[in-house]
């Protein structure tokens, strides 16, 4: 063995090829089958898509680095299920490009935060976390409520996502910008189309409580309020497993 190596280490190209081969095997064996083994991602016929507003909120979540402190992945451990709810399924992040499972919990897991608190609380908490939770270490995000949401090219975002596999329809892409505004202005003319395109369960509300402008706060709160609610598969699966 050492004799063989003694020869190999005299050939730069040989060494390079050997390194590439040795280093490629692990990734191939572990990643490729995730695309070929069907049960990797569960079935969930009720799976919803993110609306343009929720997607914008998700992008703000990414931009602000919320994932640095919050996970969105409840593990298959008793304490996590008892604290946060049913463990996360693969299908729940099926349309998440990229996923936001996180690796650190400076704050609590957010996988099932949707609908847990009121919009009002979310807004107050994001503006000043310590006003509602005195012990908090979370930064204040007051500027979100002051920043109007940029909605110009939402169609292009949905289009890009369609290329990577999210089934947005032509109609959704065409009306993306309008839908983003519509979801946060329930009394406006644009609201009706949102429910029609994304389902009746879509939350169409004044998320930040201010009807005058659709802000980044609207988008982020809309996103937080949908977390864990794109499908009921997780609740169903835990219930089935427990039986």
């Amino acid at each position: 063995m050492f004799g063989l190596h003694y020869k190999l280490e005299r050939k730069a190209v040989g060494l390079v090829l050997a390194v590439i081969v040795a280093a490629s095997i692990g990734g191939l064996v572990e990643i490729a089958p995730l695309f070929t083994i069907d049960e990797t991602v569960e079935e969930a016929p009720d799976m919803r898509l993110y609306t343009p507003l929720e997607l914008a909120g998700r992008n703000i979540y990414i931009r602000e680095g919320c994932y640095a402190c919050h996970s969105q992945m409840i593990r298959t451990l008793q304490d996590e299920v008892e604290r946060y709810g049913p463990f996360s399924l693969a299908v729940e992040s099926r349309y998440d490009h990229p996923m936001l499972w996180g690796s650190k919990r400076t704050g609590p897991d957010l996988a099932r935060i949707g609908d847990k608190y009121s919009d009002q609380w979310q807004v107050a908490h994001l503006i000043d976390p310590r006003a509602v939770v005195p012990e908090s270490k979370m930064p204040a995000y007051a500027w979100l409520a002051r920043t109007p949401l940029e909605t110009e090219n939402f169609g292009a975002h949905l289009d890009a996502l369609r290329i990577v596999g999210v089934p947005y329809t032509d109609e959704m892409i065409a009306s993306a910008s309008s839908d983003a505004l519509g979801q946060a202005t329930p009394d406006g003319p644009r609201a009706a189309g949102v429910a029609q395109r994304y389902g009746d369960a879509t939350q169409i509300r004044l998320f930040d409580g201010d009807a005058a402008t659709v802000t980044e706060m609207d988008a982020l709160v809309a996103y937080l309020q949908i977390l864990g609610r794109l499908t009921d598969a997780a609740t169903a699966s835990t219930a089935a497993n427990v039986e």
Binding site: G26, G27, E30, I31, L34, F35, T40, V41, N59, A90, V91, E92, S93, R94, Y95, D96, H97, P98, M99, W101, N153, A156, H157, D159, A160, L161, V164, G165, V166
Partner: peptide
């Protein structure tokens, strides 16, 4: 990329495959 005139892009992979690729 959403557009060549913008910074934002969407990862090719999603969910569990994206998670595995990311931590690989």
């Amino acid at each position: 990329p959403v557009s060549f005139a913008g910074a934002k892009s969407y990862s090719l992979f999603a969910g569990v495959q994206d998670a595995m690729t990311q931590w690989w």
